[in-house]
Structure formats: C-alpha cells, structure tokens
C-alpha cells in the first residue's frame, strides 16, 4: 500500500452533490486526481453490489456523496443511504474489507469546500493504512 497511491470511487448524485463537485473544479479547489466520480440519481440508489465490485476491482476507498436532507426525491434519503452503508459494512466484514474504506457524508449542491476536505482527508487516511 505504501508504494501505491490509493484510488477512491465517489458515488455522487446528479442534482445535489455532483454540482458541488463541479463547483470545486470551477473554483480550482484541488483534491487528489485519484478520485473518480460516477453519477447516480440519488444516493439511496447505490447498490452494495456496486460498492463491493469497486473493492473487488481494486479501489481502496468508496465514498458516497449523499443528498442528505437536500434530496429532491424524498426526505427518507438520509436514513436510506445510512442503511445502505450499514448493510454494506456487514458484507465488507464478511469479505475481510475494513469498514473504514467505505464512507458517506452529505454534500450539498454548493458544498465544494466540504467535498474537497472530505477527499483530502479520505486519501490521507487510506494512504496511512
């Protein structure tokens, strides 16, 4: 691990967190280039299967940039996304993957700085492991 830069997969949401990630770019707020984003309509749509597939393929960390209370689909989004995290954590445990490799935080549509902070912190954390 020490010789390799960790790779992070981010599930971002079309209407809420993706605009924040775009804004980070627009403001030239830098975060590690090993962060790769895939878009989903809502953070409560991410399947555990996809997260496990990412680890299986070699990603070191997975981050869900959640809609939080800003979700335009339903207010239950936060609770449902948290449920995905806990059910995936259980599956990761079964496969011997450290639970701290999967993180979630609500990223609002203008939370560019918060996103960058999360990514820098997560990359540092993964490098130390």
């Amino acid at each position: 691990m020490a010789n390799r830069t960790p790779k992070i997969l981010v599930f971002s949401t079309e209407k809420i967190s993706d605009p924040a990630i775009d804004l980070a770019g627009l403001l030239k707020l830098h975060y590690p280039p090993i962060v790769y984003t895939v878009e989903v309509p809502c953070s409560s749509a991410v399947k555990s299967k996809w997260i496990l597939h990412a680890f299986d393929q070699g990603f070191d960390g997975v981050f869900i940039a959640a809609d939080g209370t800003d979700c335009s689909y339903d207010e239950s989004c936060t609770e449902k996304t948290a449920q995905i995290i806990s059910q995936t954590h259980a599956l990761m445990k079964e496969q011997g993957i450290a639970p701290e490799k999967l993180k979630m935080a609500a990223i609002c549509s203008v939370c560019a700085e918060s996103f960058v902070k999360q990514m820098n912190g997560f990359a540092d954390q993964l490098s130390e492991q």
Binding site: D22, G25, K28, P33
Partner: peptide
C-alpha cells in the same frame, strides 16, 4: 473539465491519466 482539468490543474500529468 469541472471534474478533471480544472480540479487537477495543479497536476497535468495525473489529470491526463484520469
């Protein structure tokens, strides 16, 4: 652009790889 060239304008080589 937003998620690559602008976000990683400090690291053009890695930006190209990404």
């Amino acid at each position: 652009r937003e998620q690559c060239s602008w976000a990683h304008s400090d690291k053009p080589v890695q930006a190209t790889e990404k």
